[in-house]
Amino acid sequence: MAAGTQARPSARSLSWRQFKAILRKDIVMELRTKEMVTSMGLYSLLTMVVYQIALSQSGSAFDPRQIAAGLLWLAFLFTSMLGLNRSLVHEQDQGCLEALLLAPVDRPVIFFAKAIGNLVFLLIVEVLTIPVFAFLFLQGGGYGGAWWMIPTVLTAGSIGIAGVGTLLATMSVNTNGKDFVLTVLMVPLMYPLLLAAVSATTAAVLGGDGSVDQFWAGMGGVAGYDVIMLLAAYALYEFVIGA
């Protein structure tokens, strides 16, 4: 009835096209508005000021490297929530999510595209934050581990935050009190991931005897969390997005 029905492309190549389209759209929108990276970057900068207050009475004998990893991941966790919330609010705003659901798209494709987009923005903010943090707090401290340790744990930890966070943010944008609900859901769920990531990051920062073992133990925790929780999030996303 309608003019010219095109040949049906194979399901997999269509999914790949859709995945790229969603990701590209998120990146184009972000490059245009710079909303997420600016707000997240500014937020993490403000956290640095708060850290200065927290550390102001610790005295010169105190080595901030001991708690540097914890402070960093804390900043990442809270900035990530800001970005996650924004990323899903975009979809909700004009009912775009509804239009997305009407397209012949497998729900996991939406999940992975949104999660990867969030991961990219989170990593950008992390890469911007770390030098500032090091400049402000770690001057003269030195870096103990191998150079690849920090990027490894950063990426693995961010995958978990972005993956689980995308699932939770998809729920929280549909509630009253969006950002508050996201915080309440996110922080306890992230606990094991952050604990392991901080342990690995601390080993990387301090170096020394046994630090490689501690790093891999922490990485094992991060990787285990990523695999299990991402599988769960992937399986559950369809229910969340259809509700």
Binding site: Q6, A7, R8, P9, L14, R17, Q18, K20, A21, I22, K25, V28, M29, R32, T33, H90, D93, Q94, G95, C96, E98, A99, L100, A103, P104, V105
Partner: peptide, 27 residues
């Protein structure tokens, strides 16, 4: 719908291109 179901931060062309990709439109 009474909601436009369009992304406000994309241009008209980009919006249509995006949804065309989602539907796997060939041209």
């Amino acid at each position: 719908s009474h909601n436009p179901l369009l992304y406000p931060d994309l241009s008209a062309e980009e919006n249509l291109q995006f949804f065309a990709e989602m539907y796997g439109v060939s041209d």
